[in-house]
Write a protein that binds this DNA or RNA. Structure first.
Lengths: 343, 343
DNA sequence: AAGCTTTAAGTTACCCGTAACGTAAGTATG
DNA sequence: CATACTTACGTTACGGGTAACTTAAAGCTT
């Protein structure tokens, strides 16, 4: 029984050919519609294909080196963050419409996980790779350089990418938010986010934010949750800790909208009014950001479009079309009503 | 140039072997740690492996039929729904920890997309498949039966699965919600959801819901958004349409929490008080469900756990361990405070 | 009808790694 | 010292499909 489940149970092209009374090669030609066979032969072969339920083994084709695979490896830090889920959706939908498949890798924000995943996925001879972030381990970078396949680094716009890059300038987006909050009259501002071993887009954003605030004479009090995912609950508890520290912040900027929601909820539970008692600003502009009566102050990023753009660059490169190696997908500040009005 | 990018640029085992002055077979043994070689030989080979940056071609290994692939195909309707994103995260994390890779397929809630994806992914000789839902096209079902690989159908608990199944009983969960809302004193109840060509878990839930409400003497007014994704905006507009129809519903049950948030937002925008003027109930219990001051009435489902369980069943089967073919992951009603108190 | 072209096939070699088998040394045993 | 055994390799064949080449038959030309 267990033997039957192994692959020898699958019908091969030779079996189809034998059943149809032709050679393997003729059957192959029929299946690829290459021409060079009679109608009678085609019908005979196709009949047997249906009858035996033959499915081609793409492994063999790719392995033989005649064509590249249809796999594209896609690494994403985590899906708990709705933002990345949407990016992935954009990528997979677009890739799928061009007959390509996504091989997923969740790297949990660590370079080691990413490196391991890259090693594994490369051994499957993917057509290309789409990676989140610009920071890779030295060994990963070496493997990527040697791979000789198209690579798109997304999320964090990279002016000197390994190959191609699409995303936004996170430093600038943080800077713009900092400047905006300063313009609203805040100067003692908190930041709540997560913290990981390696640099990432969120830290770049924070850098830009601090530069704007501190450059404008304000100060930033940080509250970082170590090794946590940037979701609702850490936002709640991070806010609690930040406010308990007695730093007297008037406004809090969060790593993303989900964390900002956590913060809003904490404030509501303590009877604090937003924005009268405290200002709240998120980042990412989730669709759900308008669920609260007041529109969440945030930074809009076209997530789905970003994913699609990444897939398009990949497809373009795989089709040998000329591709602009860097694409800025842009962002837009949502003033919202959860911070004091700047007017 | 273009030639270089093709696979002949990749270092093969033969090249490593030649460089190390041994046969292919010896190099292979060293890399697999199989034994049968001297320390000197091992060092020589490993040195060349590092030097040349050799990466094994797993395609060849699998192709040779010596072992099955490490791919597991995973089909998910869409990632716009946070629920499925979490399920996928649970699956991929667990699979990854056992050295398996997810090949993703977003089927957009259509059987045709699913069938196409199944055909493609099977041609890559996956070790197994994890599919969302129990309804597949006839041709898909046939391919799945012939594939001879483990298959886990998730989400919708299936007492007679193709192979294995893990999920919840959606009919019962809808029924329980219906009974709860009736117990709160509602009898004229609305439902807002999406509608697709084929049956799915949401329609099963609605069936259970109707049975409870209508069986208890109430009535259900349905508002279905055709071919839409079950997210925030359709919830908003679906609510608008339902209320404009003049059906006078006192309470609305939504296909999921995201849609319920849209409904909440619509009600807030019209100055309606929840639950005084209208009751709101969601389904799925997203973490963010507590962001509103009042806890959203909902149905809790352990999404991440569901994904993990699916992956565990797959791994178990692939390791020839005995696996219980059906697993009910359970649900739990969250009374919340967005419907009238039943007390 | 002989010679040429076209059509419809078949044959061979190859991709890369591994199972199975072969072999030549060295080691142990009686 | 002959025999059996172990170690450390090498050699051959194979998997499923396709490129490149070969071949046989049919069709066409003059």
């Amino acid at each position: 029984m267990k033997e039957k489940i192994s692959k020898n149970s699958r019908v091969s092209l030779s079996e189809v050919a034998r059943a149809a009374g032709v050679s393997k090669m003729t059957a192959s030609r029929v299946l690829r519609g290459e021409g060079g066979y009679s109608e009678k032969t085609r019908d005979k072969v196709m009949e047997k294909v249906d009858q035996l339920g033959y499915l081609p083994n793409r492994l063999a084709t790719v392995f033989a080196g005649d064509q590249s695979s249809t796999f594209v490896g896609v690494s994403i830090p985590d899906l708990g963050n709705e933002v990345f889920a949407q990016v992935l959706e954009g990528i997979d939908r677009k890739l799928g419409s061009f007959g390509r498949q996504t091989v997923l890798g969740l790297t949990q924000h660590t370079q080691q996980e990413e490196e391991n995943w890259i090693r594994t996925v490369l051994s499957w001879q993917p057509a290309g790779l789409i990676l989140t972030g610009r920071y890779h381990s030295p060994r990963a970078t070496e493997m990527l350089r040697n791979a000789g396949i198209p690579i798109v680094e997304i999320w964090d716009l990279n002016s000197s990418p390994l190959d191609m890059s699409v995303g936004i300038n996170h430093f600038d987006s943080g800077f713009d938010m900092g400047r905006y909050l300063m313009s609203c009259g805040y100067s003692n501002i908190g930041y709540v986010g997560t913290s990981h071993d390696t640099a990432n887009a969120a830290t770049t954003r924070l850098d830009g934010f601090c530069k704007a605030v501190e450059g404008g004479g304000g100060r930033v009090v940080k509250q970082l949750c170590l090794h946590d995912t940037a979701t609702y609950y850490p936002g709640f508890y991070g806010t609690e800790q930040l406010l308990a520290s007695g730093s007297g912040v008037e406004c809090i900027f969060y790593q993303n909208d989900a964390m900002a929601f956590g913060g809003l909820q904490y404030c509501a539970s303590k009877g604090m009014q937003v924005p009268q008692d405290i200002g709240i600003a998120g980042w990412g502009d989730l669709p759900i950001a308008s669920v609260i009566a007041r529109r969440l102050t945030s930074m809009h990023v076209p997530h789905l479009k970003l994913g699609q753009a990444a897939a398009e660059m990949m497809i373009g490169r795989l089709s040998d079309e000329p591709v602009e190696p860097c694409r800025d997908i842009g962002f837009r500040l949502i003033p919202g009503t959860t911070v004091r009005n700047s007017a």
